[in-house]
Each structure stands twice: as structure tokens, then as C-alpha cells.
């Protein structure tokens, strides 16, 4: 089976030849190319090359042209702060005062330098991967993006205290997310991960989610012209799985803070489960611990398909060693052959 066939089979809740696994590596590509993280992300060609080399090395089932979350605020004119040994972060918020919001409009994707780099990367990957390896694009959810646009505290106040302004911000963020996702699909992305940790039950209560993040997701996902997955970036999701199943998405990214078997059973063939290796602990795992974690996840969730093994955040920390990544890959190849023994 090609990686794409493997993934499609599991999405159809059938067992492929082996458990598909996504090593969601971003910054590690810089190591491959002997570059700093900043230099690596300055050109789409670097990221494409990094992704191809890493897939050649580890043999996982996807290519991941995700640069870093704050690239989306960069597209709105925001600042990105690079770090030598970790992911870039968003700088000073572009919205300093909620009053600015009603005068804002979403930026266009064309000609937006930082986003064009990502699209170039996707086009190269599509050339190389043909239709054999899924290319997983990423958008921040319109509901989660404001944390970087205005700061978390100011955003919480906006949600609770200024509902009309909040609605307007959702409207322009939805326009942005939809066109950004669709441009990635046009460039060759097979599917889009919708990162929405603020909708996680760790961040807002379900009642609030049902009034806010749920509808934002429902409207946005409906307008993305390709398959999607919803990812909570290791926030909890168990109590809202039924709601997520109504969003019209295919995949749910789940946290190590919840039991994988319980999540899988609650998804009940409506959603494929993506997860849930602990990326933070992975930084200090021994080979033995890595093996056990992979076997444990496979035992809990692989049976019957509907499962893709990955880390639980949607990005493996820079500190995780090549040795551990190879161990993960080997263990899936050994213990992940269907039927699972």
C-alpha cells in the first residue's frame, strides 16, 4: 500500500496493511539541512527538502508543510520571534485595543510573502510525492488565532464582555482561514488540519464552546474544499467528541491527558483518532520507553482502523532525538502490522 492508500483505508475505518503513522516534524528539518531554524523557514524550498529527507529517513505516512503557528499573525502584519532551539513565537499583539477590530479586514493570501513560502513548499512536495503520500496542510482556527492576534487575557475578556466585536473578529478570521486553507489545497495539500486548542475543554467550558468555537468550526470547515482534521494541540476533547463528530470533519487530534481507548471508543467510527504520544516526555524517553509508548497506543486504538499514530500536539519538539524517532518508526513497522497481535 502507498501511504495515501494506508491513510484512506484507516479513515474508512478498515484495517490497512499496518498502522499509519505521522511524525509531525517541523524544526527537525533545519537539523537535516544544517541550518538555523530561522534560516530554514526563510524559504519554502528548504522546508520541502527537509520534509522529503525526513520522510526518506523515518518512512512515516505524511509530509507536513507546517512552518509555525505565528506565521498566520505574520500574514496580518505581526512580528515573529525566532528561537535557536525551539519553535518561533508570536511577538507583540497586532490588536492592542479591541476598538481596532471593527476597522480590520483579513489580508489576502496572494502576494503575502510568508504564506507564499508555504505554498511553494506544498507545490514542490506535490511534485515529488505525486499522489502517494498525503500532504497535510495546517490552518489555525479563527477561534484560536486571536490568542496570537491580541493576547490570551485580552481575548478572554473580548469573548465574555464584547460579543459583537468578537463576532466581527470571527467573521474576518473565518474569511482568512477559509481562503488560506483552500489555497493550500490548490497548491497540492491533501487535507487540512484545523488547529483549535481554544475549543478544547481545557480552555473553555462546553456550553461556551457550543455558542462560539463550535459554530466557527462548523462554518469554516464547511467551506474548506478538502478533507479536514480537528486538532486540540494536546488540550482535552473527550467531553466534546459527539459535538466534534457533528462538525463534518474526519480526524480528531487527542491528548495524552485522556485515555486513548476511551477516546477511540467514544469516536465510534465517526472520527479517526490521531495521537497520542507525549511529545514532552518524548524529549527524555529511552528507546525502551519509546517502544512501550508506541505499543501501548497501538494496543489501545489500532484495532479496526480509524487510527493514525502521532504525537499529541501536532508538532514534535526540537529536542527529540533522531534515535527516538527511528525507534518509534521501527516499532510501528514491527508491532503495527495488521491484524494486530
Amino acid at each position: 500500500m502507498t501511504p495515501l492508500e494506508r491513510v484512506l483505508t484507516t479513515l474508512g475505518h478498515k484495517e490497512p496493511d499496518r498502522v499509519p503513522f505521522f511524525l509531525l516534524l517541523t524544526m527537525h528539518g533545519a537539523k537535516e539541512l544544517g541550518m538555523t531554524i530561522k534560516e530554514y523557514f526563510s524559504d519554502g524550498k528548504n522546508v520541502a527538502e527537509g520534509q522529503l529527507r525526513m520522510r526518506a529517513k523515518y518512512g512515516h505516512d505524511c509530509l507536513f508543510p507546517f512552518f509555525y503557528a505565528p506565521i498566520e499573525v505574520e500574514a496580518w502584519g505581526g512580528e515573529v520571534i525566532f528561537n535557536e532551539n525551539g519553535p518561533p513565537n508570536s511577538g507583540a499583539p497586532i490588536i492592542q485595543n479591541p476598538k481596532q477590530i471593527l476597522n480590520m479586514n483579513a489580508p489576502t493570501i496572494e502576494g503575502n510573502d510568508c504564506l507564499e513560502k508555504v505554498l511553494e513548499c506544498i507545490r514542490i512536495l506535490k511534485e515529488e510525492a505525486k499522489d502517494e503520500v498525503p500532504i497535510i496542510g495546517v490552518v489555525m482556527s479563527p477561534f484560536s488565532l486571536p490568542v496570537m492576534q491580541m493576547g490570551f487575557e485580552a481575548y478572554l475578556k473580548l469573548i465574555y464582555e464584547k460579543p459583537e466585536v468578537f463576532e466581527y473578529l470571527m467573521k474576518i478570521n473565518e474569511e482568512f482561514a477559509v481562503s488560506w486553507a483552500n489555497k493550500q489545497i490548490d497548491a497540492g495539500a491533501t487535507a487540512i488540519t484545523y488547529f483549535d486548542p481554544i475549543s478544547s475543554i481545557s480552555m473553555v467550558p462546553r456550553e461556551l464552546f457550543l455558542k462560539t468555537g463550535f459554530w466557527v468550526a462548523k462554518r469554516t470547515l464547511a467551506r474548506i474544499k478538502g478533507p479536514t482534521g480537528v486538532h486540540f494541540a494536546s488540550g482535552r476533547c473527550l467531553p466534546i467528541i459527539d459535538d466534534v463528530a457533528r462538525l463534518g470533519t474526519s480526524i480528531i487530534g487527542t491528548s495524552v491527558l485522556e485515555d486513548l481507548a476511551e477516546v477511540k471508543s467514544k469516536c465510534n467510527r465517526r472520527l479517526t483518532v490521531l495521537g497520542n504520544l507525549n511529545g514532552i516526555e518524548m524529549c527524555r524517553w529511552t528507546k525502551k520507553e519509546a517502544k512501550e509508548a508506541v505499543k501501548n497506543a497501538i494496543d489501545k486504538a489500532a484495532s479496526g482502523g480509524g487510527f493514525i499514530l502521532a504525537d499529541n500536539h501536532g508538532e514534535i519538539p526540537f529536542q527529540v532525538s533522531e534515535e527516538i524517532l527511528i525507534t518509534i518508526a521501527k516499532t510501528v513497522n514491527k508491532y503495527g502490522q495488521y491484524p494486530i497481535k
Binding site: 478572554l156 469573548i159 465574555y160 475543554i201 481545557s202 480552555m203 473553555v204 461556551l208
Partner: peptide, 10 residues
Amino acid sequence: GSLALSQIYM
């Protein structure tokens, strides 16, 4: 897990 972060913050 029965209350969310926004509630402790507020």
C-alpha cells in the same frame, strides 16, 4: 475537567 480555564481566569 469539569470547569475550563476561562472560568478560573475570570
